[in-house]
Design a protein around this nucleic acid. Structure first.
Lengths: 149, 149
DNA sequence: CTAGGGGTTCCCCTCGCGGGAAGGTCAACC
DNA sequence: GGTTGACCTTCCCGCGAGGGGAACCCCTAG
C-alpha cells in the first residue's frame, strides 16, 4: 500500500503521515525498490488508532506515550482512562473560562452606547474596558483561532 | 522611558513589545544615543490599548486593523462592535463543541468497563471508539494545549 | 576593576500540520 | 518513442504569539 492509499483509507493527508513518521509516532515503513513507502494493514490500524485518539482530544505526545506503553508490554488502558479524565477536567476548565469571557463581552456589548466618547484616543469601547481578569485572555485566543479554520 | 519600564507599567514583557514593533502593531520608537528604544506616554497608551483589546479576545491582526482605521481618521467603534459580536458568536460555537466533546468523553469513560478486551491490539478504550464527529477534533486541541500552558 | 542590571540583535522552539519547490517514477495514451 | 498526468521523494517556510537563550554593548555602584 502506498502512502496516498493509506491516507485515503484512514482519512488523513500524506503530509500528516510523513509528519507522524518524523516525530516517531509511526515506525519507518519498508521501502519499495523505487524508494516509495510501503505500508501494510498493521500500519493502517496504528494510524487509525492515532486518529481516533486525537479525535478524543489527546495530543500527539499523549498518544505517543500510550503507544510506547503498549510497545513495552503494558496495557495502557488505565493510563488512557486517566488521560480521558484529565481531558474532561480540562474541558470543564475551558468551559468555565469561555462562559466568563462571553458574559464579559455581552455585558460590554450591551453597555457600548452608554460609554461616553470622552477622552478616548482610539476607541471608547476598548479604552473604557480596563481588561478582564488575566485568565480570560487565554480563553480568547482559542476562539479567534477558530475563525480562520 | 526604556522598554523595560514600559513593559512593567503595562504588564507585558520586553519580548512582546519588540514583537509588536516587528509586526507593525507599535511604531518604531525614537532611539537614544546608545541605541536604546525611548518611549513616551502615548506609547504606553497604545500598548495598553493593544493589551486590553487582546484580553477581549481580539487577535493581533484584528487589533492592527482597528488601529489602522483610527490612523486613517475613521472612528473604529462600530467596527469593534462587529468584532465583539463575532467574538461572542465564536465563543458560542466553541462552547457547543466543547460541551459535545465532554459528553462524548463522559459517555466513553462511563462505559469503559463494559468494553470487551476482545480484539484490541493497543487499547480497547480507544479502539472501541470509532471517532466522534470530525468537528469535535478541533475542539479537543484547544483543551490539551491548556494543559501545558 | 569588576559585578550587576539594563539594553541590542539574532536565531531556534512551540503544535500539527499545509503549501509549494525541485525532482524521480510509473502507467497510459498518441 | 515521446508526452502527459498522477503519483512519489526530500526540503524548507509559514502559521499565532511570543519564550528562551546566545553573544554582545552600556551604564552605574562599590
Amino acid at each position: 500500500m502506498l502512502i496516498g492509499e493509506l491516507g485515503d483509507r484512514v482519512g488523513v493527508s500524506t503530509k500528516t503521515i510523513r509528519y507522524y513518521e518524523g516525530i516517531g509516532l509511526l515506525p519507518q515503513p519498508r521501502r519499495s525498490d523505487n524508494g516509495y513507502r510501503a505500508y501494510g494493514p498493521e500500519d493502517e490500524a496504528r494510524l487509525a488508532f492515532v486518529k481516533t485518539a486525537q479525535q478524543l482530544g489527546l495530543s500527539l505526545e499523549d498518544i505517543g506515550q500510550v503507544l510506547a506503553l503498549r510497545g513495552a508490554g503494558t496495557a495502557p488502558c488505565e493510563h488512557v482512562r486517566g488521560m480521558l479524565r484529565e481531558q474532561i477536567r480540562g474541558i470543564g476548565r475551558q468551559l468555565a473560562q469561555l462562559r466568563a469571557m462571553r458574559e464579559e463581552l455581552q455585558t460590554l456589548e450591551a453597555a457600548i452606547d452608554q460609554i461616553p466618547a470622552g477622552e478616548a484616543t482610539v476607541c471608547r469601547v476598548i479604552e473604557h474596558t480596563r481588561g478582564p481578569r488575566q485568565d480570560l485572555a487565554s480563553a480568547g485566543s482559542a476562539v479567534s483561532s477558530r475563525r480562520s479554520g
